[in-house]
Write a protein that binds this DNA or RNA. Structure first.
Lengths: 340, 340
DNA sequence: TGTTAGCACTCAAGTAGCTAGAGTGCTAAC
DNA sequence: GTTAGCACTCTAGCTACTTGAGTGCTAACA
């Protein structure tokens, strides 16, 4: 892979990303600025094809990048495009507005990603991992209402109102609260299984119904699925991509993006190394998405939330725009936390 | 509009709903069971066209229903299809599982509607209208943490943790709690404007920072937009409809369905009379959706939530299936509440 | 040895012309 | 009022043809 081959590959990829048309030797000769004739370029292209970086849709067409070609481009050739100052400012502004409501914040992220790139945005939000219960309180609001409160390390609060059929005396209440505190303080919400709670429930089933009821309610406000959420926005952008002009293809992609299961499998493990990551075509491992690429960046808002922001588009994607954008946004999100 | 015309119209519409192809006189003659010849049917069809109930795509094609035709069908001709017992049971089961988590419940609704009909489901959820604050409490968790709690009539609880920079003495706390209780008890959360809260804030700005901070935080957990949510599912079903094989049309529809604003305008005011409602084609008032119909049914889960479930598909929609399905689901949702 | 011009060859996409078939409207007979 | 018959219309699908982009190969050149 000498220098000239790299330049040829680079020219082919950038041209193809722009036009979605196979690139011919003539166009490369002009665009690459190498000062050689199309015939020479043809030889290089023939080599590149043999090496697997580009491919020919049919004999008399130009070349287009293969997954391997994009991979090489992303890893070695691509020059990240700097964010326009107004874009950076816009992102910073929009994100700071919604800091306290995670759902809104993530919806906003999706909209921004999608609008700034014209691809489809994907976001995973985990609000419950490594959330340790710091304290448990059982507060009497009035004779017939108890409030069960769990404060998590980091400040989030979970609670549930419990309506009583009969009133309880303060002593009962105190012993109950003590019991809960002993059994739940220090527990990790993300790992609190229903079984654990059920065991607790069973162990104290001889006690009066008040307790049983409170534990039953604990069950579903700690349920693990509540901590993990997925957002997406901009699916309609898929329709503008010439590579998805096949209805069945499109249908299976759009259908898949509506399923949390699929989003989970696309985004999971992407936060592992803390770096922006690019998955191209078959690398995604999804049958229906062999012509898609996904770019993801993990963010960490401390105890409030961690997760991944990302986008999905055709493999012919403007990686040089997508990568720095997501990097920047993830950084801003992570910083939001520290400011607080 | 004599009896025979009605039968002809009915035959045309049911056939067209099934096949999406213009219906010819021969087909109607056979299918309607009127025992007259195609020529006779042709005369009737000519009349129906003049009356505006059906239209001809081009001279040598059959007829297809107009918006007016569908309207007549829905209002007078349609026979609601009874839900299959297993469908009813399935719905009942699925909905009872998720009763306590509104978001999940509504997502489930969407999935069911979409899967049982192969159209796109839309749901509006309002959890905050007519929610009156029953009591306000300010609970000290420890020296540096206060918990601000508002209990709403009906049992929902809203709260926010407040971290203090300096500790407060119990007297300050009590007077603060009293102040909040006096000013907020009985207020309607849905109508609590930022301005009101800001006035409160201003009025007490001379007090110590603890108070100010607590009020600031009140602001965003009562913000009205949080009470209104929209869900959709099954957008990919739009792709299977032959009427949407134009990419631009499809793109604008799918794009629109991703916007809360659009969903709001499509679903609002549909709960007014408490009945299932059908909006056909141009009746929707949306430029891009002239070839779509929406069926909606309001539900009322008391203080927990009210809203609208619905679905959107082509005007050539199986109304006789969609209407009873939504009616049934809305009824189940409303009953879920009463059971509790 | 690498580069280039020239040329024959290939293939997709677009265009024009044709045909088949479905369906109509009209007329005249029943 | 109903029906059969018939001429007419229009679309969808098919075939054949043309165009043009792009290639690979060869032979000449620096």
């Amino acid at each position: 892979m000498d220098e000239r081959k790299k330049q040829v590959l680079h020219a082919i990829i950038t041209d193809y990303i722009e036009t979605a048309e196979p690139v011919g030797s003539r166009a490369v000769a002009k665009k690459s600025g190498l000062g050689v004739s199309p015939a020479t370029i043809r030889n290089e292209m023939s080599d590149l094809e043999e090496l697997g970086y580009i491919e020919q849709p049919h004999t008399s067409a130009g070349r287009k990048p293969s997954d391997k070609g994009y991979r090489y481009y992303v890893d070695y050739l691509m020059q990240k495009e700097q964010l326009a100052p107004f874009e950076a400012e816009f992102i910073r502004q929009s994100l700071s507005e919604h800091f306290s409501e995670m759902d809104l914040l993530m919806q906003r992220c999706c909209q921004m990603i999608s609008r700034l790139t014209n691809y489809t945005a994907l976001v995973a939000l985990n609000t419950q991992q490594h959330k340790v219960i710091e304290s448990v309180r059982l507060v009497s609001l009035n004779e017939r209402q108890l409030l069960l409160v769990a404060v998590l390390k980091g400040g989030e609060v979970k609670n549930r109102l419990i309506r009583l059929r009969e009133s309880v005396n303060p002593d009962q209440l105190l012993s109950l609260e003590r019991f809960l505190r002993q059994n739940l303080t220090g527990a990790d919400v993300g790992k609190l299984e229903l079984t654990v709670l059920n065991e607790l429930l069973a162990a104290f089933s001889q006690q009066q119904s008040v307790l049983r009821r409170s534990l039953e309610l604990f069950n579903d406000f700690f349920a693990p699925h509540l901590g993990e959420r997925f957002f997406s926005y901009g699916t309609h952008n898929m329709l503008s991509q010439p590579e998805f002009k096949d209805y069945d293809k499109l249908k299976s992609i759009i259908g898949a993006l509506e399923e949390d299961d699929v989003l989970r499998s696309l985004l999971e493990n992407k936060a592992a190394d803390g770096k922006t990551s690019v998955a191209i075509g078959k690398e995604l491992g999804e049958e229906d998405m062999q012509e898609c690429s996904i770019v993801t960046a993990p963010y960490d808002m401390g105890n409030d939330a961690q997760g991944v922001i990302g986008l999905i588009g055709p493999t012919r994607m403007s990686y040089q725009k997508a990568v720095p954008l997501l990097e920047f946004m993830a950084q801003i999100l992570s910083e939001l936390h520290r400011k607080d």
